[in-house]
Simulated scan of single mutants.
Amino acid sequence: MDSLLHSTAACIALGAAGLFFEAGLLTGLWKYLCMRRSSEAQAPHYVNVAHRAALMYAFSAQLLAVFAALSAFPAWVNTIAVIPPLLFFAIAIVHYLHLGLTTLSNNTMRDSADRNKDYQILNILAAAEIGGFSVLLAGFFSRLLMS
């Protein structure tokens, strides 16, 4: 456990995990309150999505922290690798919160004003999340092979 506290990347990821989990708990309350007020006992679509995403990203951030702490790569490499996935996790949560507040859509891609821009953002998101984790995973396997 101490290796988590001695790694800058792991501390950043654990801090993000805590914030994402808190967002998951708060959006869970929001979801519940929406369900109580709804005649169908349902929350708006993106309130549900924000709740689930925040909880999922909290545990994903913990996984990033563990792989960063166990990586054989230098601290600066792990820190650079952990930031893009966390940044895009946070952006997604904020985006879903906004959509939950506005309740203008239950499918933002279908209702997008500029799908090409949205697709570009999703391509960057995929590269950042997969690329960042791939670096941490490679560092983990490098450490395994060195031991």
Rank of each mutant, 00 (worst) to 15 (best):
M1T: 10
S3R: 15
L4N: 13
H6T: 09
H6V: 02
T8W: 07
T8R: 13
A9F: 07
A10V: 02
C11M: 14
C11F: 05
L14G: 04
G15R: 02
A16V: 10
A16C: 08
A17V: 09
G18I: 08
L19D: 02
F20D: 02
F21H: 12
E22I: 14
E22Y: 15
A23G: 05
A23W: 06
G24C: 06
G24E: 08
L25Q: 11
L26C: 11
T27V: 03
T27W: 10
G28R: 12
G28L: 07
L29R: 04
L29T: 08
W30M: 03
L33Q: 11
C34R: 15
M35G: 01
R37H: 07
R37Y: 10
R37Q: 08
S38N: 14
S39C: 08
A43G: 09
A43P: 02
P44L: 09
H45R: 01
H45W: 09
V49L: 14
A50R: 03
A53H: 13
A54Y: 05
L55C: 03
L55V: 13
M56L: 13
A58G: 06
A58D: 10
F59Y: 14
A61H: 07
A61N: 00
A61Q: 05
Q62H: 06
Q62A: 15
L63W: 12
L63G: 13
A65N: 10
V66A: 12
V66I: 15
V66D: 10
F67M: 12
A68F: 12
A68R: 06
A69N: 10
A69S: 10
A72S: 02
A72H: 01
F73D: 02
W76E: 04
W76P: 00
V77T: 11
T79C: 11
T79Y: 07
I80D: 00
I80V: 14
A81W: 01
P84A: 11
P84Y: 11
P85I: 11
L86M: 08
F89K: 07
I91D: 09
I93F: 03
I93E: 00
I93P: 06
V94Y: 14
V94C: 13
H95I: 11
Y96P: 07
Y96H: 14
L97P: 00
L97S: 04
L97F: 11
L99I: 02
L99D: 05
G100T: 03
L101P: 00
T102N: 05
L104N: 10
N107K: 12
T108C: 12
M109C: 01
D111V: 03
S112T: 08
S112L: 03
S112P: 00
A113W: 11
D114I: 09
D114Q: 05
Y119N: 11
I121L: 15
I121F: 15
L122H: 12
N123I: 12
N123R: 15
N123P: 00
I124C: 06
A126K: 09
A126Q: 13
A126Y: 09
E129W: 13
I130D: 08
I130V: 12
I130F: 15
V135D: 04
V135T: 06
L137C: 09
L137K: 01
L137W: 12
L137S: 03
L137R: 01
A138S: 05
F140H: 05
F141H: 00
F141C: 02
R143F: 05
R143M: 12
R143H: 09
L144I: 04
L144F: 03
S147H: 04
S147P: 00
